[in-house]
Amino acid sequence: MNKIIRYGLQAFNYLLFIVVVWYFSINPPYHQLENDQAVIILSFTHATKIREACRKLSQEELMKLAPNMRLPTSCPRERSPLNIELYLDKKLLAKEVLQPLGFHKDQGVSIFKSIKVKAGEHVLRVWMNDDVNVDGSTYHYKEKINLKAEQLLLLDFDAGKKGFFVK
């Protein structure tokens, strides 16, 4: 075959190749949000309350234990599950019941929830219970927020200091 035609065909194939490489390296654009949406991320780790309080062991219970294990009090390590509900303008966005981590359920609870919402003014409300021995909420949070489009609002929690707070 004529060399010029062959090289022409090769050039066409190379062109096709780089068009494919270029196109899929940035196209089609991916819309992860609508233009009027923002994102609320609920994320924190928290050590929930211990399920059972420490108690004194009876003499009978102590005798059943090995001599080197005979501590006068027993303190179960298991922690309470965490119940949490997140509302935006009275609309339930998330409802989770999380079990503590660890084989003995004695570690903290970790939550990470990413929720797309409409931008604009909203009322954010959180209801949380971290103690099985308490009925109702142990923490409650309500805040007026004004979300801009593409804004990421982090809803965090710090039991020791300020409870729930937004960043």
């Binding site: 899929f24 196209n27 654009p29 991916y30 949000l33 949406q37 593409e150 990421l152």
Partner: peptide, 13 residues
Amino acid sequence: AARVPAVLNLDWF
């Protein structure tokens, strides 16, 4: 960290 862009040009490969 405070922004989530609505549109991204993903490398689909």
